[in-house]
């Protein structure tokens, strides 16, 4: 079984700790993770802006990188959603690429989906005695239907107090280039999202997409609010280490 990591560009360059956490966690279950070096980005920034040639150039590296994999795991509902929801459209005029895209879609999973649906793991044996709130990112929820998996995983973490985020389904305003192009609207959206996070009085905000977390976390920092942002994988991995230290 060849399990490959789709690092995603943001996790590679800005949040390498997230990709590392996934590899370490899977290693505990004996799963050796393969990291193809030719992968870059799923192409979403270009695709969503309408630049499909540019998106294809980037997405092609993903198609090629995982040809030989049995499973592909990614620390992002959005990048996984791109593969699942848009690759067929993007490559519809290229028979060979289209076939590749369909094969990739079938084997690509967002991290919590992979853990719960594929491996059947709900309790990683972690301990994390903190108040935590969870922001379900739009693409993971709406394009992939991820609803229960992260909650299931978090519910088994000992000491963790999960506080419901009010209006959790609202978009944080990230939207890739939207945050830059329509910065005032995006700013108003992230401000509202941050208000909701602060209402929970959580110490940690977790999610499945570093883009959204960078947005909310960046705004909280701008306001001087000391809420820590973490990917669910990071939290679980840190929690497992903590449990083993005891």
């Amino acid at each position: 079984m060849k399990v490959s990591l789709f690092i995603t560009c943001i996790s590679d360059v800005v949040y390498p700790r997230v990709a590392a956490a996934i590899v370490k966690l899977l290693n505990r279950y004996g799963i050796e993770v393969d990291v193809p070096d030719i992968q870059t980005c799923c192409g979403q920034p270009a695709f969503n802006s309408g630049y499909w040639d540019e998106a294809r150039a980037s997405a092609s590296t993903i198609l090629d990188a995982f040809e030989a994999s049995d499973f592909v795991v990614a620390p992002s509902g959005s990048c996984t959603g791109m593969i699942h929801h848009y690759y067929e459209e993007l490559f519809k005029d290229d028979r060979v690429r289209l076939a590749q895209a369909i094969r990739l879609k079938e084997k690509t999973y967002e991290f919590t989906q992979f853990l719960v649906q594929v491996l059947g793991i709900k309790d990683v044996g972690a301990e994390f005695p903190h108040k935590v709130t969870y922001h379900p990112s739009c693409h993971g929820t709406r394009l992939l239907g991820i609803k229960e998996e992260p909650r299931e995983l978090l519910s088994h973490v000992r000491g963790l107090e999960l506080i419901a985020l009010p209006h959790q389904e609202d978009c944080c305003g990230f939207g890739g280039t939207f945050a830059v192009k329509m910065s005032a609207i995006s700013g108003a959206m992230v401000e509202e999202k941050a208000d909701h996070v602060l209402v929970t009085e959580a110490e940690v905000l977790v999610g499945l997409d570093m883009g959204c977390l960078m947005n909310i976390g960046g705004h909280l920092e701008y306001r001087g609010e000391p809420v820590r942002i973490m990917h669910v994988a990071e939290l679980l991995e840190e929690g497992v280490r903590r449990a083993h230290e005891h």
């Binding site: 390498p16 370490k24 700013g187 960046g218 701008y222």
Partner: peptide, 23 residues
Amino acid sequence: GWNAYRHLPSLPSETFREQWKQL
């Protein structure tokens, strides 16, 4: 546009790829 409402995290000293071999 970004920093009018947020701070941007700086890039860490190594990308994931750069740490991968050692990890």
